[in-house]
Amino acid sequence: MNVNREHRGQMAAMSMPALVFTVAMIAFPIIYTIWMSFQTYSSTGQVIGWGGDNYSRMVADDRFWNGIWVTIYLYVLSLVMQLVLGTGLALLLFRARRLPGIMRSLFISPFMMPPVVAGMMWLVILDPSLGAANWILTSLGLPPSSWLASPAIVVPVLAMIDTWQWTPYVALIVLGGLQSLPPSVYEAAEIDGAPRHKVFWRITLPLLLPTLVTAMVLRSVDLLRFFDLIYITTQGGPSDRSMTLNIYGFRIGFEFFQLGYASALMITLSIMVLGAVIALNRLRAAVEW
């Protein structure tokens, strides 16, 4: 296209504010954090050196490795539950075909509310002494649980709350995938008289894989950075059992103001997220049809 100089200038003027903002508020801060992660601070916050101190401290820090473990445990548990339940829910919605608007709003409601609100409401429901959850358990003759206050099950409980919130989101993504599958493949299977479960495992699921991987990417990015819900409910406790890398880095940074060490932790977490996104994108390319 033949764009003259004035046109080109106007195009630049239109994209420049967003570009300047992106550089100033997103790109530059990332570089600044990388730089801070290589700075050594004194106990009073003065820069006293430059090098890999923060990273060598990290590798020797038990709470860092605990953070890695909690992050991965919470990530894998939540992702598996949300994919399995989300696919199931999508199949139910797909079979029902017509979905009343009110039903759609209902399924949207958990993931549109702030995670902070979800945390407030589950805190009350799961209260160990007066919560409704333990009342249901004891009415059924089961022993009460201390839920978020229990070191042993705090991660599964957090995964459960996140699964309550995000399963409908995964379901709506998978439903979009189901609706875009060509009907001809089902018709062919029907003519062949293939049994229902075989149609699912041999036809529907393989065709759905790219959609499922997309859902995995979107959830992975959020789950590896799991923050709001934990900060509102447990703040990493009891005894560090829900201290994800993100929560740990935040507390190091803004409760102890060790900016250099917090930067190193956040750079490490970002590399984990980036690694997961790259790996899943490779996977998506492999299952694309």
Binding site: I30, Y32, M36, V221, A262, M266, V273, V277
Partner: peptide, 16 residues
């Protein structure tokens, strides 16, 4: 990148 990096990564330099 703002959707991929943890919020704290931005908060640290922003705070400074």
């Amino acid at each position: 990148m703002a959707r991929m990096a943890p919020g704290t990564l931005f908060l640290l330099p922003w705070y400074v």
